[in-house]
Design a protein around this nucleic acid. Sequence first.
DNA 1: TATGGTGCA
Length: 779
Amino acid sequence: EPIIPVKDPTSDMAIISRKGSQLVRKHREQKERKKVGAPGGTGCLVICDGKLRILQIGIQKTTIRRPEQKFAEHMKEKNEARSEFAKKKSLLEQRQYLPIFAVRQQLLNIIRDNNIVIVVGETGSGKTTQLTQYLHEDGYTSYGMVGCTQPRRVAAMSVAKRVSEEIGSNLGDEVGYAIRFEDCTSEKTLIKYMTDGILLRESLRESDLDHYSAVIMDEAHERSLNTDVLFGLLREVVSRRTDLKLIVTSATMDSDKFAAFFGNVPIFHIPGRTFPVDILFSKTPQEDYVEAAVKQALQIHLSGLMGDILIFMPGQEDIEIVERLEELENAPALAVLPIYSQLPSDLQAKIFQKAPDGVRKCIVATNIAETSLTVDGIMFVVDSGYCKLKVFNPRIGMDALQVFPISQANANQRSGRAGRTGPGQCYRLYTQSAYKNEMLTTTIPEIQRTNLANVVLLLKSLGVQDLLLFHFMDPPPEDNMLNSMYQLWILGALDNTGALTPTGRLMVEFPLDPALSKMLIVSCDMCCSADILIIVSMLSVPAIFYRPKGREEESDQVREKFSVPESDHLTYLNVYMQWKNNNYSSIWCNDHFIHTKAMRKVREVRSQLKDIMVQQKMNLVSCGSDWDIIRKCICAAYFHQAAKLKGIGEYVNVRTGMPCHLHPTSSLFGMGYTPDYIIYHELVMTTKEYMQCVTAVDGEWLAELGPMFYSVKQAGKSRQVSQADAARPHRVCAWRSAAWRRRCPWQSSSCEPVEKNRRRRATWAASGSSVTISTSFTT
DNA sequence: TATGGTGCA
């Protein structure tokens, strides 16, 4: 259905909005249509600040076909556009112009008098580049390095480069950086920028961080998983090492909380330098944020005011609808540019290119533009008020990727994007009252909404005895912690007393999720480690396959050529082997709708993991074409995530009984081949409960490899696997170990009857009988 | 029967 061009856009705003509505009405109709039959209850319960909040968002779904799209052929030009200011002034003059320079001595005094200081540094204050240098100038580098953590790699690299220029040394000498795959430091290094994940790994080797005299945790308010773990660890390190200085930077709104956590430490405030941004709230709540955003962007566009527009949307799908703005041909030229992480980098680069004269840029972004990417020249921000978040449900072991209202902190960050190069305006598509009363002040930190298996393993290896007593700034839900411990126990990383086993100790060495580490370890005994190594590497990077708008069928057909009918894992192996046979060619990738960037990373990950395997004296052997061995090996690490065929194309989770669906990207999807049992890599709730990356397994493997869950029973002539134990962590562990029970606070009366049953079952199981006890699942 | 917010090791 073509969109009718607006006849006279400048004279009649009513027409514009009508056209806008037309576009969106269609979108909404389709959305409604799709909603029918979709599972209800996409809402989510969230506990924040002791309050229980129910968040329920409708499902966004549309299918709009686009004409064939041409791929961009040019990459982002790397002309180092220096500002007029930078050209005229010397580096020293630039440094002295920064707001932080005015408070330099005060800041150094307060650091000298306190081991921990919270620094509230607004954008443009210069804290990231100057703090390290001030500490260096004040003598802190005479007895150790000054370390500075960043949540992102690009930031660590680019800031280190800038500071090395300011100091007048080569990058890697006095000033260096370390990120995964790249250590650009030397024995001379005094100032080290790094990602927070690197510092966390370093603390494994050297728990007191003796190489450092000072550590700055920059952008700590972003509260990444690693930041939160480091908070707890560094707090202890500082109490042991009185010579270590810790500086934590934070946003204004949570500085008090940070200060309290570290023991009522002082807060130092550095003003920033940004341009004012007018905030405009919607007078009434918007029914449809896509429609509202389109209308608002058009209104700005036709207002005659200059400057580029940035629209924040929750996800790719909404972005693709908003992109149709461009089709309003009679309106003044508007270049609508999408940006999200999965977009190929050549298309991403477009947002940084200067638009032709007289053409206004309108960037439609996910929250990638909130912190990760900065585009200059944005004058207007249109904020939908929503973002997607991944929340983990420990009970069913499922991630849900859902649309949530943003927090006040997000909203402020978004509006700030309009004031980087001049005064700007921010249009919020929600009411002021919604902002004040309904939005959380800050987003729920990641540690409270993710699978913690990795964190638990790390803390265990650091010798943290009782994880429930570990000092987190915002402790994760107890259920979540215990579930992760249970998962580690299943994988053999923890013993019955909750202590790390030799397998667990080996697992810590790998920068992988525990189940993937386990798979790698098991593969050495099963003589398929070279093959599993590739599969594990492929699973460690985001999306391999690219499915561009307008070429869906074409790309699906190409993908099918790689498909191994019984396994997505093997399909991945196949893709890698073919890429290798084609000399790791990027042209080959483009021809086969495969993300080159992702494949390069797979190769890097593979080589890093291989190094660790060599270092750990693990043998690297391939099983050749005996793919059954590979499937069994995968089963050995993922038997706890199994599903059983129920009807045509219908699966139910073996342990929970929950219906699960094959993801449409699976090679088992719609192929007519429906094995009785499959294991899955990941369970994600988007529009449905989807199993992503699945492999067919023999039912008997499940019983053999996962005896705590399954056993084989005789049913007529056919042998069937059924659920032997749907126990929750404490229940299994409780009867196994009194020591474990003591550390499980939920070992309370409510669990008692179940525990008794459990003991009886355990006896039966131990007697060698093949009788299966079917346990009904309750949530 | 129909599809992935953003980072990090």
